[in-house]
Design a protein around this nucleic acid. Structure first.
Length: 808
DNA sequence: TATCTGACGCTC
DNA sequence: AGCGTCAGATAT
């Protein structure tokens, strides 16, 4: 057999067991296929989506042909492919898992399972088999025979117990599966109607119409008037689709489907761009602009204090990339909390922007991706998934608030957007800007080492002063007999703020502070039956809920442990703080922003805009009140419990606390008025609190980096977290010990330590027990390679997390 | 001894 | 991931 053109295809099935390309013949009519195309291929006895990653001329002996091309252009360009490959190697996932990140909805096809009778069905044999079964069986088989391929959904209507029947039919080969494949996420289309004849002919036809044929007359008149009509206009003119069809059949009009691009963010109100730049902004741009023009890989850490105008720098940098006809990716930590940044970008770039967020349908996402792919848009802004947008002219990637932990994906593939961005930028020869007021220790360390160029902005826009911070030692408050969650200095500050008709934000650092339920007699805390975690009391619905598995439970009257009736709701939830505030300031209008009040779509934005409009005096909430907004009338920020996160056994506790305090304090005094901050704490001497109060990043960094070095934590080492899971507590411990022993034996690489196994901090979630093993290493690449060769990743009860954000 | 359930392995 | 094969367990 002569050699022929073949394609190496990665099968889009997210399992690590088939992590290699398969060869397929490229049929003559699909000769346009090259690397990067999405194709439909036969795989076993089914048809699946695949990605072409290589071309060869080889013997086609035993190879099947590609069935179809799913698009008529390559979806992946070289840098996307290289990024996917890098991601799969670094994070130990299959190439398919990495590549499908680039596909809207993870797959371009949807398989609809259906059933039909085989052509050679032996009815006599069937009759014998069915004679032992209820009459229903015969009815259903006849139905399948008569109606051709039938979906399971259709069959459910025929019998309430369809599953065992289907199973029986399949087993005895009375039916076979016949999967139909639908392409997903195709562009939405619009039906457009035009005249198919000249205006004169149309006018004559219209005159000749019978008097009572008003629908056709209306249509012709409308077309003579406006050239073309859409379905929306047809509905308005009360013209039935039938009328249109009839006229199309007569050759009077043409009906076409034209793709349209949905724009679900169109309604968002826009904010005018501030065109004057501060001296620091100009200085920073003098570094950035040549780098962008250079069209080579470069990376910057933009360390700018809160209110220093980082967004304006981003906009200028993106504008420069656009002038060079390069495209830009802008990442924000959470789209719901960053509507202000999006509004500013939209004001500056209008239709050149595509906004990606998790609420988009697959179709909308597909449209957005297509606008970028075709160059109709040049900028994509979104959460970490925007990183995988098919921009072929990538020139710039911006990561706003680069220290945010939401950039780490907590499901497989467990990638960190910052690392992937740097990799993609390298492959695309693009510039990266990492921006933050509180850079992550790792990034700052790398910047000091020269891996990123460090740019600083130390002043706020218009020389506005940093807010003055008062640290309140809550132990002294208690010693003076004050037991309220609101300290005297905080109360005073709020009184003054309200008197001046200015606004305040109160942050409740909720970690470890949830409202659990405790028996005062025996100390028993009510916990979830399926998860090793205390249940949370929800005041509005008066029920207990587990935040891990969402199970709801009524509050018991007596303690399930000792039978006592003294059950009490504990903890300082936002609701409790709200009550305290209402007691102190009965006239103040308070709005709460927490999980209870923001469950609805865009609730964050609504609450924030109502607060910004001055409808409320005090905004009270958890972490989310500290981020991404800029309200000029906010002059006071109160932090109820600055230190709760400090007590967690997490090596990043201080970093998280410092970042949160700085971000929260940064909300005060964004306008012309000076801001004030009160931080309440039981740890006033902790360096994270002191540095936070002084707005002193470098003081915090110096302290923290010392600890990291002492304890061999990142950035001095890399971490790998291996989690073993099982529904059996004994099994999970046994397997974890075995794995730890195996690792200790195999990983005899220098500067590597294996810690554990130890039970995860939430030992059980949804009835699954979890045990962790932590690897600290200075040689990540070698260890990763070794773990890969040990085949640990393909075990389905083991999770390997490279650079985990959460080590507990 | 016939049937069922679960581990293993293959898919170009 | 499916889906088929094979082997061991279980009902008959």
């Amino acid at each position: 057999m002569p050699d022929n053109a073949t394609a190496q295809v990665i099968i889009n099935i997210p399992t690590r067991k088939i992590d290699k390309p398969f060869s397929y013949v490229i049929p003559a009519h699909l000769s346009a296929i090259t690397i990067g195309w999405r194709v439909l291929v036969p795989f076993g006895n089914r048809r699946v989506e695949g990605f072409v990653v290589g071309l060869e001329i080889e013997s086609t002996q035993g190879l099947k042909p590609i069935l179809e091309a799913l698009d008529n252009y390559p979806w992946f360009d070289n840098n996307m492919l290289a990024t996917a490959k890098w991601l799969s190697e670094y994070y130990l996932c299959s190439l398919a898992e990495a590549m499908r990140l680039f596909i809207p909805g993870q797959s371009g096809i949807k398989i609809q399972k259906s059933y039909q009778t085989p052509a050679e069905l032996d009815w006599e044999h069937a009759a014998i088999l069915l004679s032992k079964k209820p009459a229903e069986y015969r009815t259903i088989l006849t139905y399948i025979y008569e109606h051709g391929p039938v979906t399971l959904n259709n069959l459910t209507k025929l019998s309430s117990q369809i599953n065992p029947i289907i199973k029986f039919f399949l087993q005895h080969k009375l039916i076979i599966t016949a999967n139909s494949i639908n392409k997903r996420g195709q562009a939405a289309s619009l039906t457009v109607i035009n005249l198919a004849v000249s205006r004169e002919v149309a006018a004559d036809t219209e005159k000749a119409l019978p008097k009572n044929n008003t629908a056709q007359r209306r249509l012709l008149q409308a077309l003579l008037h406006t050239q073309e009509l859409t379905t929306v206009e047809l509905r308005r003119l009360a013209i039935a689709p039938n009328t249109v069809k009839k006229m199309a059949d007569q050759g009077l009009v043409t009906v076409r489907n034209v793709p349209v691009f949905r724009n679900s963010y169109a309604g968002l109100n826009r904010q005018a761009a501030n065109l004057s730049l501060t001296a620091e902004q100009l200085q920073v741009l003098q570094e950035l602009i040549p780098a962008i023009r250079n069209e080579r890989y470069s990376s910057f850490l933009l360390h700018g204090v809160t209110g220093s105008g980082k967004t304006q720098v981003y906009i200028q940098a993106v504008a420069e990339a656009r002038r060079l006809n390069k495209q830009a990716i802008v990442l924000v930590p959470e789209i719901a909390l960053t509507s202000q940044i999006i509004a500013r970008f939209q004001a500056a770039f209008d239709n050149d922007i595509v906004v990606i967020h998790s609420k988009l349908s697959v179709g909308e996402r597909y449209d957005a991706w297509r606008r970028l792919q075709t160059g109709q848009a040049g900028i994509v802004i979104g959460a970490r998934s925007a990183l995988f947008a098919p921009v072929n002219q990538l020139g710039l990637i911006i990561i706003d608030e680069e220290h945010e932990f939401t950039y780490k994906q907590e499901e497989a593939p467990r990638y960190h957007a910052r690392e992937v961005a740097l990799a993609r930028a390298k492959f695309a020869a693009a510039t990266v800007i990492l921006g933050s007021a509180t850079p992550s220790i790792e990034t700052y360390f790398q910047a000091l080492q020269g891996r990123h160029k460090l740019l600083s902005m130390k002043k706020r826009v218009d020389d506005a002063p940093m807010p003055s911070v008062t640290v309140v030692d809550m132990r002294q408050e208690l010693a003076q007999g004050r037991r309220s969650v609101i300290s005297l200095p905080l109360q005073d500050m709020l009184t003054e703020t309200l008197a001046k008709k200015e606004q305040a934000i109160i942050l409740l650092n909720r970690r470890g502070y949830s409202t659990f339920v405790l028996c005062r007699e025996c100390g028993h805390v009510l916990t979830c039956r399926h998860c090793d975690i205390s249940l949370v009391y929800h005041a509005p619905s008066k029920i207990l809920r587990c935040h891990y598995c969402q199970e709801k439970q009524a509050v018991p009257d007596v303690c399930p442990e000792c039978g006592s009736r003294y059950i009490k709701y504990f903890g300082t939830g936002t609701q409790k703080v709200e009550e305290a505030l209402k007691g102190l300031f009965p006239l103040a209008k308070i709005i709460r922003m927490d999980q209870d009040t923001t469950s609805r779509k865009m609730a964050h934005a609504k609450i924030l805009s109502a607060f910004a409009a001055g409808s409320y005096d005090i905004l009270l909430g958890t972490q989310m009140v500290a981020k991404g907004h800029d309200i000029s009338n906010v002059t006071a920020v109160g932090i109820i419990s600055a230190d709760t996160a400090l007590n967690l056994p997490d090596f990043r506790a201080a970093e998280k606390t410092f970042a949160l305090l700085t971000q929260a304090a940064g909300r005060a005094g964004r306008g012309s008025k000076t801001g004030r901050v009160v931080m309440q704490t039981y740890n006033p001497e902790h360096y994270a609190i002191i540095a936070g109060a002084e707005h002193n990043y470098s003081k915090f960094y110096q302290n923290e980096i010392g600890f990291r070095q002492q304890l061999c934590y990142p950035p001095y080492t890399s971490l790998i977290k291996i989690t073993v899971q099982s529904d059996n507590e004994l099994t999970v411990h046994r397997q974890a010990s075995q794995l730890a022993a195996e690792l200790t034996q195999k990983l005899s690489i220098a500067d590597t330590a294996i810690i554990g196994p130890f039970p995860a901090s939430v030992n059980k979630i949804k009835d699954i027990f979890r045990v962790n093993i932590l690897i600290k290493t200075q040689n990540l690449a070698a260890i990763t390679k070794e773990i890969y060769s040990m085949n640990i990743v393909s075990r389905n009860n083991v999770i390997v997390d490279i650079d985990p954000v959460n080590v507990l």
